[in-house]
Design a protein around this nucleic acid. Structure first.
Lengths: 354, 354
DNA sequence: TTGTAGGCGTTATCAT
DNA sequence: ATGATAACGCCTACAA
């Protein structure tokens, strides 16, 4: 279609061989200062840009990594990608983005069609509950790191401490005097959802509170789902007096439902979420939550992937990053004179909060 | 490092030539049914995946497009990417993502180092106010489409109707009886910021309201900036009674500032933003705004890029998509009995609203 | 220090 | 219908 300048062009113009140009370009030590300068000058003059595909072909390294994830339109994932992107950029890697729209079939289709030979490694947050399509890829030996939504497959994984985050969130609600705590969870078959559920249950058990199955609702991750789940809870004869939501979006849905029923959030009814989406401090009352280290998760996943890529043998590693309980108005009883912009942090988590 | 199955392997195992395998794989009509089936079976058996780099090299088409944009961590851009991604996926293209962090130097560095020969086309939302680095790329003939943040360079562009959106937003405030309308704008030198500013000014002029320079503040795009700008406005002797913000984040910052000063939003003081971030209907009072067709912008930019890629000669095209005024509580005077979840839409824009 | 030749995985152009 | 062979742009022995 159109012609890009190649090392051949440069070689021809300079009356040298392509290998000389290639060497000059890569700063190998066996080129004369003189030729190197001539080459570099021509490169500028003609606007030469290396063809990474060709380079990848000949070296067996593409300097591309793939990211496969459910969504990018939420705070958590877009922040993770930002973390990945920064690390990749610093290491001279490009990112190829695959969005599954949280559709298992699409994830499988994407991985089936994946040209793994044009990727040096893959980062995956899966929306599937079966893993053959992933195993098929890893079995070829290509480095792969799971983040956030992991699975039972062995391999490197980077995630937040879902269990302890959920445990602490629930304990916090209990400490505020709420005794009838419900959980609006994500879909079943997702490991991190399961971990948060277990953390919630264990916290109740620790405090000798009963675990009631009708106070646990599984549905999707959206605000809409949170709203519906909450309305369902409020229709029960024996209503809960607090909700721990699997994420902030569902927690916000819960708050919307509570507001529509004129229930005083924070006083009559406690709400806490998970993620620390910036919207938490925009909504009124401000939403308590467990902050996830999204950017860190991106960075560490990417670094781990590079370790895999660069070492011959690299043992799979699992990294679990702690969350931070962030207490705001939605779960604080006996609050006095709070304004919307106020932000409370529990003493033990005073350090770095977004 | 590790060996991926190639057509050579398949050819060897089947005792046919590589060209036969290549043909069978591409469903050309000059292969026997029999060989095709044998090949397809081997492909499954060995788990062959084509190497897109190699294919790209030989065809001169990589099936990769690059996206260069300032951020992905906001509603607008992440939604645009989703639109792009869907279109690209349907057309068998992969997306390579470059995030500039709104840093002109980084954008320039990225474009300087871009391996354009391994890209079939580029989508750009620039954060720069000079354009040599872009011109250098387009001068090579590679298809490029600007979206959202465009520039004076000729070429294809896809953007929302910033001027009319701003004009309508301002007119709406005026229609609600606000007469002292300020504008908290983005940084200077950004075309879309400028368009919104002019729309605002023209609306004032149309209604014979004075344009006061001390009621126009230029700063960044963040909530923080919106908060600071607003506090600055509130310190003026002659305070405004309404704000049109260049985007929703700044509008939300404005609301935070107003709340901290105990000013009744919607009654005493009107606020309207631009984007229609979902947070608009989460914040209380709900924020009026101009909805941008983010997903559409992504889809259309991508389609336009493909037209460029596929046709020999394709004339640059500029597409301007209309926004929709969405009226909520933050700009509605004399509201009665509104609840937080309510959503008002002006009659003339009743059609499709998020 | 420089040049030559072969190869990376694939497609395309000829032959056969 | 199938097989050689060259080519895509680059790198890397090996040779000079």
């Amino acid at each position: 279609m159109y012609h890009f300048v190649t090392i051949k062009d440069i070689a021809r113009e300079l009356n040298v061989s392509v290998s000389t140009v290639s060497r000059a370009l890569r700063d190998t030590f066996d080129v004369s200062q003189e030729t190197r300068e001539k080459v570099l000058q021509k490169v500028n003059e003609l606007g030469y840009k290396p063809n990474l595909n060709a380079r990848g072909l000949s070296q067996g390294k593409t300097h591309n990594i793939g990211i496969i994830l459910p969504f990018i339109t939420n705070y958590y994932f877009s922040t993770v990608i930002t973390g990945i992107q920064n690390t990749a950029y610093q290491n001279g890697y490009n990112i190829i983005l695959f969005v599954t729209n949280d559709d298992p079939e699409r994830e499988i289709a994407i991985m089936k069609n994946l040209s793994i030979s044009s990727l040096d490694g893959i980062l995956v947050s899966t929306c599937c509950s079966s893993y053959e399509h992933i195993q098929e890829v890893t079995s070829k030996g290509i480095p792969l790191v799971f983040f956030d939504r992991t699975g039972p497959l062995k391999g490197s994984k980077v995630m937040q401490d879902d269990y302890n985050g959920a445990y602490e969130a629930t304990c916090h609600l209990i400490s505020q005097g709420y005794t009838k705590i419900a959980h609006i969870a994500g879909p079943r078959n997702q490991l991190f959802t399961e971990n948060r559920l277990v953390g919630y249950k264990d916290a109740l058990a620790t405090h000798l509170l009963p675990v009631r199955e009708d106070w646990i609702i599984h549905s999707g991750f959206s605000q809409q789902h949170g709203e519906e789940d909450t309305l369902q809870l409020l229709r029960l004869e024996d209503k809960p007096d607090a909700i721990f939501a699997v994420n902030d979006r569902k927690a916000i849905g819960a708050m919307m439902a509570l507001k529509s029923q004129k229930i005083a959030i924070g006083k009559e009814f406690g709400v806490i979420g998970f993620t620390n989406d910036p919207v938490c401090s925009i909504i009124s009352p401000a939403l308590s939550t467990v902050a996830e280290p999204a950017c860190e998760i991106g960075r560490i996943s990417c670094e781990l992937l590079f370790s895999h890529i660069n070492r011959k043998h690299f043992e799979p590693k699992e990294v679990v990053l702690p969350g931070k309980l962030i207490i705001r108005e939605s779960s604080l009883r006996d609050q006095k004179g709070l304004t919307t912009t106020s932000k409370w942090i529990s003493p033990q988590n005073m350090s770095t909060v977004l």
